[in-house]
Design a protein around this nucleic acid. Sequence first.
RNA 1: CGGGACGUGGCGCAGUCUGGUAGCGCACUCGGCUGGGGGCCGAGUGGUCGCCGGUUCGAAUCCGGCCGUCCCGACCA
Length: 585
Amino acid sequence: MRMSQMFSQTLRQAPAGAEVKSHRLLLRAGFIRQLAAGLFSYLPLAKRSLAKIENILREEMNAIGGQEISMPVVHPAELWKETGRWYEIGSELGRFKDKNEREMALAMTHEEVIGDLVRKEIRSHRQLPQLLYHIQIKWRDDPRPRAGLIRAREFTMKDSYSLDADEEGLDRQYRNHYQAYFNIFNRCALPTLAVRSDVGMMGGSMAHEFMYPTPIGEDTLLICDACGYTANRQIAEFRKPPAEPEEPRKAEKIETPGADTIEKLARFLGIPESKTAKAFFAVATITEGTEDVERFVLAVVRGDMEVNETKLANAVRAKELRPAREEEIRHAGASPGYGSPVGVKDALVVVDDAVKDSPNLAAGANEDGYHLINTNYGLDYEADIVSDIALAGEGDACPRCGEAMRTTRGVEVGNIFKLGTRYSEPLGCTFLDAEGDSKPVLMGSYGIGVGRLLACVAEEHNDENGLVWPITVAPYEVHLISLGGGEAVAEDLYRELTGRGVEVLYDDRDERPGVKFNDADLIGNPIRLTVGARSLERGGVELKLRREQESELVPVEEVAQSIERRLAALRTEIEERVVEVPFEE
RNA sequence: CGGGACGUGGCGCAGUCUGGUAGCGCACUCGGCUGGGGGCCGAGUGGUCGCCGGUUCGAAUCCGGCCGUCCCGACCA
């Protein structure tokens, strides 16, 4: 491609509002343009990089038996009503009516449509297993799009769906994806971690998220460097520091004026926070039968811990969970700042397992200005549910090996879910097994955000001058610059290299050298060739890797060979990153 | 949805407080010089100042409403 004819232009300054590095650089280098919040156009450079990523996705999906299909972006509402998601999902689902006033949905994901295909096509266990995938646009009306391509409203996703007759088959497909995803991210030179995760709106029994660790990430991860345990904070477990064994004493009400936080209470009583109980009030939306009801939830953790709202929501099987308002708390007979399960009515009481095993805790008396000392689970109050509902944090002990864990932030670039029968049952996706019994198909779903992946690669590979693409994702392999006196040789080289199948971006513009060098650095193709009177006098063409400082002088007639050698080396480097990864459950 | 900020040529911004006929840098066009890290000189093109309404002799500027964009939070895969 000749830059004199290329549609993309570089920008000296990034538009205001682009704060994240990848967003700024992709904008500045002419890869993307924003149309509206969370909506982007992909210019030629981005389109080329995306095509490369998509090909990697295809290769890895095909390698584990995937077959590519394509499903619509617009779906009839009926399908989404069948799985219940039409009602479960809020404004994030795009809805509209067609000209006949039929309700339609914009695809957020494609479980419903796959399910519809499966129930129409799959009848026998002989047709299983299957792995179908497509690369398609999704619409999620995110309440807050941000960070450019990292969180867009319209985005392209590779999603695959596995269909199996039994648990072993589903497990195999899940593990295949686990490895394939590492291969994909390694081939894109993007460091990632697989972490155990919450199943969220997808439903199902097991899920992993593939996280690119970066401070701009929106998720918090817990990592144990000693044994390799990794988990999203939403579900991360940890070993809770055990309480000192004591004989339970009799609860006693005492005056604690102004001690409406755990910190103040502990200081007032002269005890550690671990000797107190913390109450958290929430209202959960729970589906009972066919109805959604709101339940008041009183959660209790030990004073030295925080409530994990995801764990709490899962413990009560809530569809939604929000903090309670003061009047709701008072209505239940509790008192904000002085709350505990003792004496509250009409509350779903959830107690963290550590509270159950910690004797003689100071807890609220449900009366402003008063606490109870020496409360004991089982003596002073009971719970509807005892479960782990505590939030893991920096330094907490690993649930597996007990070593201190650390936290880091991450961007989710992919996820894998064992859906089981979450969709096949409501949609009636059944098959006849070898015994002639009708059984629901076991499904898995596996997603990778293509644009987000591109943005993460950009986020990882850049320097103060611009992007530094890995060879597998770069829009072009070679950036050829002609300077004064080098035009004729550059033209010849451009013809020769493209003739040999090398992807060359050729800066044939009448620009000053500084402009050309800066644009080359900004765009970030891996190899730069510079031809000018000065280089020719010294005996040839300058060859420089984007990521390195020094250039090498190559005689004109050896350039093609030299380029091919360099490209092969860059590819080998990437291939060496692709290794087998042990499955961490 | 809660909090905050911003909206002025393609991009980055000033002007708004204190109302008086819209400006700077970059980009773009033409001419000339220059020619290995965003160069210089000269001449130009381009803006209903987000939209609607109000106040006023007069509104980018003051007032009200709306829309849009970004950031923090809530939410979410």
